[in-house]
Design a protein around this nucleic acid. Structure first.
Lengths: 114, 114
DNA sequence: TCCGATCGTTACGCAAGCGTTTCTTTCAAG
DNA sequence: CTTGAAAGAAACGCTTGCGTAACGATCGGA
């Protein structure tokens, strides 16, 4: 089920959502952090640091730092993989799910207003 | 002409666009910078520092700094208002228009893939 | 038991954004 | 003129993210 947008709608939607998000949320997640967060919540687990790094085309420390920050905000969690203890499994949290749910509502509502 | 999105489509669109933007563009504009840039290009001029600050609910230095950064990238320009020389008028640039045009295409293409 | 490879983290110096405060220029009302 | 307000920029110290390089822990095959 594709979404067909005109150029005006596409940029208008991004504009409205960005503006409202800036107005509402003092937590200013970077584009990278947001991309990581969405990857974790929208793609089936498990998620690893190296996997996210490869998917987004960034280095591993970028992922580690983003997880540090978002972990402190309660948006994600990390657990050692007991089957291969070199790995870290990235976990979703209730707070993170709520955060994205609210963000999705913002997108939907701004889309309706276009 | 509203845009009707399901929660899955809304977050899926943001996810896909963020991911591709991270992969493609090393210029990592913050959400605030992006909101300012879109405001300048989508809302009829003239634009002033104080006006943008009020619209986005941030302080003036935030706007000044964002304009410094995006000005250095060639995405916006600043000109003194000759009618009231206290004001600065923020101008669009060809490069900025191209940047947003490409970004709009990215949104449209990712929307189609949902 | 090694020992090289892999995974995630940490350390380093640097660049950029933040909020608050202060400054400079300019305007306009008295 | 003088003076108070307004607009934008600059200064301050701080925090956070960056890329690169090095590190410790862990695995798995020789």
């Amino acid at each position: 089920m594709p979404v067909e947008l005109t150029p005006s709608q596409a940029l208008g939607l991004w504009h409205a959502v960005s503006r409202e998000q800036v107005r509402v949320d003092s937590r200013d997640l970077t584009l990278r952090q947001m991309a990581i967060l969405l990857e974790i919540y929208l793609v089936p687990p498990p998620h690893s640091v190296r996997g996210l790094a490869a998917t987004l085309g960034v280095t591993k420390p970028v992922i580690t730092r983003a997880l540090d920050t978002m972990g402190a905000l309660g948006l994600v969690d990390r657990v050692r993989d007991q089957r291969d203890r070199r790995n870290v499994i990235i976990k979703r949290t209730v707070e993170g799910a709520l955060y994205l749910e609210k963000f999705g509502d913002l997108i939907i509502n701004q889309g309706r207003k276009l």
